[in-house]
């Protein structure tokens, strides 16, 4: 395996990690506020569909982005209605939203475009253009560093850079702002937050708004990357992001590393159908299952312990 191949795999890992990272951060905000979000998958799918549809009709991915974010937000608010306002089971609501997205995207897609649930393919301004960072061509000639800059760091879409910027931003919001402190508190002990005179309901809804926007970005990215929406295109990424979230122990920087790892696994799996280690061949299915297996091992507490926010999954009932 030569240097350029490694760079290409890493480059593809970055591309694949982008939607995972955005979705993982979405889950991070929501679960840190005490709202478990199994519905990430559904939001991703809904956003990808609306983004793909809007971009196909208008020819602009930026309008697609707006539609994707709005769709994801709508799903997020539905989750809030069920799990915050009506104090329903957050897990059940999330599961329902996933099915709702899986069904609605195909039913509506078929009715709009008559393409068996797909949207027309996107081209030109219908997709995000890749940003070539300054001097990437000139620097490409410098050995070792040059190709790395050109292949790996330059030439991604705006959303990839945004996703990576979102990591320090999320860290700052969560750990350095008043809002973040309250958000974390409401996920650990909503009763205390309520006693301090801060609205638990409003905080949790704002967390879901952030989660909705982030999932909307991730879904739009998927639609742009694949040049259109196809049925079930999120393909379990919402669940992998959930796995990454546990892997990351609900922390922003760890989320970056976890999603990069899962992106890398996917990139390797895409490039090599099976990997031979001496006489033993690792089948491609094993590579596909690896993120899930790793998550189960982490969850089992054999490699460090993942402790979720204490009040996550519980609806808050105000005392009279």
């Amino acid at each position: 395996m030569d240097y350029l191949t490694i760079l290409q795999i890493l480059d593809s890992a970055l591309r694949l990690a982008t939607p995972l990272l955005l979705t993982c951060l979405a889950g991070l905000f929501s679960e840190r506020a005490g709202v478990v979000d199994i519905g990430l998958e559904g939001k991703l799918l809904a956003a990808a569909f609306l983004a793909g549809a809007a971009a196909a009709v208008t020819g602009s991915i930026w309008i697609g982005l707006l539609a994707g974010v709005l769709g994801s937000l709508a799903f997020s608010m539905l989750h809030g209605l069920a799990s915050i306002t009506f104090q329903g089971d957050q897990l059940i609501s999330g599961v329902a939203l996933n099915f709702l997205a899986a069904g609605l995207t195909v039913v509506i897609g078929q009715s709009w475009f008559k393409l068996g649930g797909r949207t027309p393919s996107l081209s030109g301004d219908g997709r995000f253009s890749e940003w070539n960072l300054p001097f990437s061509d000139a620097m490409a000639k410098i050995p070792v560093v040059g190709p790395a800059y050109d292949e790996l760091i330059s030439g991604h879409t705006a959303l990839t850079y945004l996703a990576f910027l979102a990591v320090p931003l999320s860290w700052w919001v969560l750990y350095r702002s008043r809002f973040g402190l309250r958000l974390r508190a409401v996920g650990e002990n909503p009763g205390a937050v309520d006693t301090a005179g801060i609205s638990v309901v409003r905080l949790r809804y704002s967390a879901l708004v952030i989660a909705g926007v982030l999932c909307g970005l991730a879904g739009t990215y998927l639609a742009s990357l694949a040049a259109g929406f196809v049925k079930d295109m999120s393909a379990g990424r919402g669940y992998i992001a959930l796995a990454a979230l546990i892997f990351a122990k609900w922390r922003p920087w760890y989320a970056l590393w976890a999603t990069l790892l899962f992106g890398l696994l996917e990139a390797i799996g895409n490039r090599y159908q099976s990997i031979a280690l001496g006489d033993f061949v690792i089948p491609v299915q094993f590579m596909q299952a690896l993120p899930y297996i790793l998550t189960v091992i982490i969850l089992a507490g054999f490699v460090g312990k993942a402790i979720p926010p204490r009040a996550s999954g519980q609806s808050y009932v105000k005392e009279r």
């Binding site: 539905l78 209605l81 069920a82 799990s83 009506f86 104090q87 329903g88 089971d89 957050q90 059940i92 609501s93 599961v95 329902a96 939203l97 996933n98 099915f99 709702l100 899986a102 069904g103 609605l104 195909v106 039913v107």
Partner: peptide, 16 residues
């Protein structure tokens, strides 16, 4: 699948 989702939503999460 849509009907299934709505049934889960209304009988499960939106019970209240």
């Amino acid at each position: 699948v849509v009907i299934q989702a709505l049934v889960i939503m209304f009988t499960g999460a939106l019970d209240n």
